[in-house]
Amino acid sequence: MSEYAHPEALVDSSWVADHLNDANVRLIEADEDVLLYEVGHIPGAVKLDWHVDVQDPLSRDFLSKEGLEKLFAKWGISNDTTIVLYGDRNNWYAAYSYWLFTQYGHKNLVLLNGGRAKWEAEGRPYTKEVPHFEETTYHAEPADESIRAFRDQVFAGLKDENLRLVDVRSPQEYSGELLHMVNYPQEGAQRAGHIPGAKNIPWAVTANADGTFKTVAELRDIYAAKDVTPDKNVISYCRIGERSAHTWFVLTRLLGYENVRNYDGSWTEWGSLVRSPIER
């Protein structure tokens, strides 16, 4: 993993196994399938339910700075704790969590390369025991939204020749052939298609069969083929921002792109906006 722009953003399963009893390491499992944690999880891991734990209860937004401080304090996380994120779906929601926690300034964040699937494939231990930690005091920074895109920025970017929109959904979603993903009614939109000018680079093409990330050379070729290069401003999107956060991680942490934002409103917002331009 040393070839990546920021190799410190990844750890492998052996590293995790060696640090299961490290008091300064906190494992967080963030799954698309929220029931997997109860089936079994890496010993010492806490469960992050994205539908509940990091959502504002009223506004379509994330939890506040104070909300994150309470959540981390409950999990026994201090400002110098190394947070190891992992999950199913090649780390969809783990990457989403990484992106969110980066906004609030946590420095020691890593992804388990290969996520839950890699840990399972190697026959490493699971437990159903839910850990409990002594509550800490945590101080988050005000949210740095320079890595987050909003719809007005996307509208403005439609006229920016240096901006590259990256639609990380499946080709069927991108083309407009598929409007609603099966089993994802909460991610519905009024119209199908993609944002004008967006390049379709499905998030999954960046991963190997075992869930680990592809090499730097392979990743560079994938994005260069669609003219998504380091000199461009990039906005990634999907339906609600979790798959596009995975792409944000690849571009910023593995390839070292400096100007990448994740549009978490994504197609659920854009596909229902009155008079928003759409291509098919």
Rank of each mutant, 00 (worst) to 15 (best):
N233C: 01
N162H: 09
F155V: 14
V34A: 06
A17Y: 13
N259L: 06
S146R: 15
N259C: 05
E134L: 09
N262E: 04
I222V: 12
R124K: 15
H19T: 10
G265F: 03
D18M: 12
E187R: 14
Q190Y: 10
W267P: 00
H194D: 00
R280E: 12
G211P: 03
R148Q: 11
P196Y: 10
W248V: 12
A5V: 08
P57L: 12
Q55R: 15
E218L: 05
H19L: 09
I222E: 01
G44L: 11
T229W: 03
T136D: 00
N162E: 11
K107R: 14
E161Q: 13
R26W: 02
S170M: 08
W119M: 05
E279L: 06
R124H: 10
W75L: 07
P202N: 08
L71I: 11
I42N: 04
D167C: 06
L68D: 00
A23V: 03
V130Q: 11
L163N: 01
F133A: 11
N183D: 12
Y126V: 09
R191A: 10
P7T: 13
S244D: 01
G87H: 04
E242H: 15
Y104H: 13
S175F: 06
L178K: 14
T247H: 04
E242F: 02
V34S: 09
T229L: 04
H246Y: 08
G44N: 09
A73F: 02
Q190V: 15
Y4K: 10
I235Q: 02
A94G: 12
V154S: 01
A225Q: 14
D12K: 12
L273C: 11
D53A: 12
H6W: 03
D61V: 06
R151L: 10
W92H: 13
V228N: 07
V34C: 00
D231I: 09
V166R: 06
F249E: 03
D22E: 06
P57E: 10
E38S: 13
N208V: 07
T127W: 02
K74Y: 00
I201R: 06
K107M: 03
D167M: 04
Y174I: 05
E145V: 13
R169K: 11
V84L: 10
E3G: 07
R239Q: 13
T229E: 01
R60A: 13
D22Y: 04
C238G: 04
V260Q: 06
S64M: 10
D22G: 05
G76S: 02
E66A: 15
G76V: 08
G271F: 03
I83S: 03
I147H: 09
Y126R: 15
M181Y: 00
L48M: 11
E120Y: 11
P230C: 12
Y104N: 04
D80S: 14
V274Q: 15
A143T: 09
E3N: 15
H246Q: 14
K47M: 08
R239A: 06
Y138A: 07
L85Y: 02
D33K: 13
P131L: 08
Y138M: 08
P230N: 11
Q153T: 03
L109K: 08
C238T: 09
E145D: 13
N21F: 01
D231P: 09
H41N: 09
L48A: 08
L68F: 15
Q190H: 13
R26D: 01
T81G: 03
L251C: 07
Y257F: 15
G157L: 05
S59M: 13
D61T: 12
